[in-house]
Nucleic acid binder design. Sequence first.
DNA 1: GTCTATACTGTGATAGAC
DNA 2: GTCTATCACAGTATAGAC
Lengths: 208, 208
Amino acid sequence: MDTTAPGPRPAPAPGSAPRRRDKAATRAALLDAARLRFGRHGYDGTGVRDIAADAGVDAALVFRYFGSKQRLYAEAVRAEVPAGLAADRRRPLEEVTADLLHDVVFADWSAYDGEHPLLVMLRSSGRDHVRAQLRTRICDDYLGEFARRLDGPDAALRAELLGALLLGMGVMRSLVGSPALGEASYERTRPLVDRLVAALAQAEEDGR
Amino acid sequence: MDTTAPGPRPAPAPGSAPRRRDKAATRAALLDAARLRFGRHGYDGTGVRDIAADAGVDAALVFRYFGSKQRLYAEAVRAEVPAGLAADRRRPLEEVTADLLHDVVFADWSAYDGEHPLLVMLRSSGRDHVRAQLRTRICDDYLGEFARRLDGPDAALRAELLGALLLGMGVMRSLVGSPALGEASYERTRPLVDRLVAALAQAEEDGR
DNA sequence: GTCTATACTGTGATAGAC
DNA sequence: GTCTATCACAGTATAGAC
């Protein structure tokens, strides 16, 4: 495991707030460090000691404040799904998917080392508790309203195909590091995605 | 799929029957066990002792035969990309993508606990050596010929979008366990994918 | 009350003696 | 080929210093 930040306690730099003995600040520091570490190295690749060292506190505080590594993970990786992304039925579909594209694929989630929390979780999908969290967030939070919008017999399936496309793009960019998608801009990618979304929306009209 | 390493071994002397303690057989058993374990629990969640126990041998053999856990992983997870998937320029595009759909998303890779090796690797993408392997296999092996087929300015990007879609579908099915895609059949899914592929191929004709 | 030191128990990879 | 020792490090718990 990563043994960066050794030593007992690097004295706080002059000017930085000497945050000692502040419960809320320590909790927040632990969460920030956890996001970064979990994002970079996944659940198993991260130790509570590393996180604590990054936050400048002792590892025991993880258990004091969060109970377990697992609960720390769950809390660190919880991010708000942008409210109303798919909620407003009056917005055109491409606009909503464009927002999703921006949010999931192109946004810079610097708190998670540049990756969307969902992609971060993907890396730890070997753990059952992570899978469950993932499924809920993707299928319910992100795609639920979508499925209701695209009605028709295959609505749920088509909504998940849309999710697969966006998620896959994020995976290609962040986890795989593919060249074209990695360098492409949001502006250049959007028309292609729009076209795909249109094809998906249109599919409800013909019998299959 | 079975990579029974065919080393040029001399045949045992006539009369000496025992096929137990066969180097090649032990190696193969270790590889099989490794595929299953790595598939189920990921790189970090798997111990060499588990693998060795599954194979019925001692853990030290892993190091004797493969040098390290990391090299065992690399070898276990290497699977042949179906030759000629995208190679034949005369096959219609939808046929080729349908093959990919079947191979990546719907095939039952029972040797890997039901998941395509690429998805298995995704779970371990926190490790740099895994990422490098991933990128090569996806972008070069699977999508390279594709990009050459779809010519036009955005060819590489569109090829990667196709990859993203298929990969994302696999992710939704295997790693996330999404309900609709999880239960959908290949036959029901294919027309939707065909439509998306058509939209992608068609995009080269209009200016963006 | 907030935090640190340290110990406990399990398991990881690996080396070297049989 | 196998067994066992080793040694680092994981998650977690507790006791007590500030």
